[in-house]
Write a protein that binds this DNA or RNA. Structure first.
Lengths: 144, 144
DNA sequence: CCAAATCTCTATCAAGTCAATAGGAATTAG
DNA sequence: CTAATTCCTATTGACTTGATAGAGATTTGG
């Protein structure tokens, strides 16, 4: 299951993507619109900023905007920031590979083979879904 | 990421599948072979038993054996017992569906659409991988 | 029969994670 | 300068995870 943090992040980003324009949106506005606890959202956006997914502007008239085109921000990108690797085991993670603590021979591990296939399938989907698509779909549904 | 419990469960089951015969194997033997904390393994096997994945025999000469043919026990079956639903959100879970707390309209939720596709991809893989395959693969690798 | 071996059950624990909150420091527009 | 805003660090309570302890129930070999 994804964390609450991930949900909030996706909702906030979807809002930014939906706006389209590059005017920064303030934390409090996002928090209110999306019913996200304000302080928690602050922390989330800060993390998203460190990875370049969003950009911030401080001071009066400050706020957040997407750090790159919405089509270049995938669901996988976001989930990796909020929830860590997509992989079901460190030994099949691309971004955070680590040998399992008590693995005796990785190359023949039957568990690993299944988890690797699962990771590839998940990553294939989540890397192909991006914020631009999602926002467009919302527009089509009349939600915006 | 899967839990430690899931790893232990898979390893224990793989051992049972590898044995092939239906003679029960004792907890302490599994624990020793697979280097799993004995008391923890006890609890895990008990859970697996409740769902029919393993069968137990008490008293002297007791122990555990698979509750059904190895080919009928998928990785998905095991992970669902130890770690809960495969889905990334309750709203896309087949075995534990629940509406998201603050979802305003599920049918048009863009996040849900992506998570649903991810769930289907993961489930497709993990339901197709079973203990018999995994044990056979270990045999081919010369690990048994 | 009975005693040893085994699974079954309930309770407990420490450490870690998650979701949320608090308060002030730094920055910028006007 | 001052008000509005993001940035940063710390803290909290509830829950989960991984592991352990000990007594209860059941079966079987001798």
């Amino acid at each position: 299951m994804i964390s609450q943090k991930a949900r909030y992040a996706l909702r906030a980003l979807l809002l930014l993507a939906a706006r389209g324009d590059s005017n920064p949106v303030q934390i409090s506005e996002i928090a209110e619109q999306e019913k996200i606890p304000r302080k928690f959202l602050e922390a989330i956006l800060l993390e998203l900023k460190k990875t370049g997914i969003v950009r911030s502007h401080r001071g009066r008239q400050g706020g957040y905007s997407l750090g790159k085109p919405a089509k270049d921000i995938s669901f996988a990108d976001v989930l990796r920031v909020t929830d860590g690797p997509l992989a079901l085991s460190p030994c099949v993670s691309v971004i955070a590979y680590r040998k399992c603590d008590d693995c005796f021979e990785e190359s023949i591990c039957a568990i690993r083979k299944a988890l690797l296939a699962a990771r590839d399938a998940t990553a294939q989907i989540l890397e192909s879904r991006n914020l631009a698509q999602a926002a467009a779909q919302l527009r089509r549904s009349g939600a915006l």
